[in-house]
């Protein structure tokens, strides 16, 4: 038995966890807000993509030109119209809890709307390449997972370049490091937050589309990924984009490789065990920096 397929599968799933976690960590790193609606927003991206695919049959990867901008606008507006008023009202509080409750409530709204419109069924987009398998020597790899790995790594690299090398990326990092001083540089922090939120949701669009050809869609699909993303974000280091990718891949690899040797419930225990050990040795996470 070769380990090669499980390594690729694990890395692929892990990179997707990483991409989802990157969105979460981007919002946290810039705004210091934990978005509890992250999983629900992923679900929204997947369900809308599934619905368009079911009607038109377009290759799901191509749907990024529709779903990507839509999700960006959704994220942008979520910050501008839902979160901003609460952040302003709580700006002088040391321990703002209102935004957390707001995002948690928003996720319930989204999930129930999806339940109402889409129904509770599990559906899968059986695309032309969903069951395609590449054979290398004596190991075989599922096509959508391999594509998923490549796309996810590519998008992660793009995000990294955006944050490190472009003007808006630099503004985002500056706002995350010190929003008051960023304002002294003429940076509108509320608008920067909205851009961060928009990018975060656009990353969810990519993750959702990559999952579509091989993962079941349902209104509750977000929960699994949100829990994983939280683990990954803390494991990789709060606010760290490379940390999210590495953390995601570690979790994905443990999940699939361990599954070959033990039952699924033990695998989950193993994930949390690794998580606890990392936090014990390095409380700020693998790539964490001290914030504030």
């Amino acid at each position: 038995m070769s380990l090669m397929p499980s390594i690729i599968n694990g890395a692929s799933m892990g990179a997707i966890y990483g991409l989802i976690a990157m969105g979460l960590t981007l919002i946290f790193g810039t705004m210091r807000v934990t978005n509890f609606a992250h999983g629900a927003m992923l679900m929204l991206a997947m369900i809308s993509a599934y619905s368009i695919w079911a009607v038109t049959g377009i290759n799901p990867y191509l749907l990024i030109i529709i779903i990507g901008p839509l999700m960006f606008v959704l994220g942008y507006c979520t910050q501008m119209f839902l979160i901003r008023p609460v952040l302003r009202a709580e700006s002088d509080k040391n321990d703002p809890i209102g935004v957390l409750l707001l995002t948690a409530g928003f996720s319930i709204v989204l999930e129930n709307l999806a339940l109402m419109i889409f129904g509770a069924d599990y559906r899968m987009a059986q695309t032309s390449f969903s069951n395609t398998v590449f054979t290398f020597g004596n190991s075989s790899l599922s096509a959508p997972r391999l594509f998923g790995l490549i796309i996810t790594l590519g998008v992660s690299a793009l995000l990294w370049v955006f944050l490190q090398r472009t003007e808006p990326g630099r503004q985002l990092r500056a706002t995350g490091q010190d929003r008051n001083t960023a304002a002294l540089m003429g940076i509108n922090s509320e608008q920067t937050f909205a851009v961060a939120f928009g990018i975060s949701c656009a990353l969810l669009a990519v993750a959702g589309l990559v999952l579509l050809p091989f993962y079941y869609v349902s209104p509750s699909v977000g929960g699994v990924f949100q829990t994983r993303a939280f683990i990954v974000v803390v494991l990789g280091g709060l606010g760290s984009v490379p940390g999210a990718l590495v953390g995601g891949i570690i979790i994905g690899l443990i999940e699939t490789i361990a599954a070959q040797f033990m039952t699924a419930s033990v695998t989950s225990v193993l994930i949390y065990l690794v998580f606890l050990i990392v936090l014990f040795v390095k409380p700020s996470g693998l790539f964490g920096t001290k914030l504030d």
Binding site: R173, D178, T181, A182, M185, G186
Partner: peptide, 28 residues
């Protein structure tokens, strides 16, 4: 005006305690 618009008017403050962006290079 909010702080970022006052900066745009050319009223520029060097805050107490420097307040640099710690995880950025000098150039950035």
């Amino acid at each position: 005006l909010p702080a970022h618009k006052i900066a745009a008017e050319g009223i520029i403050q060097v805050p107490e305690g420097r307040r640099l962006f710690p995880y950025m290079t000098v150039h950035e």
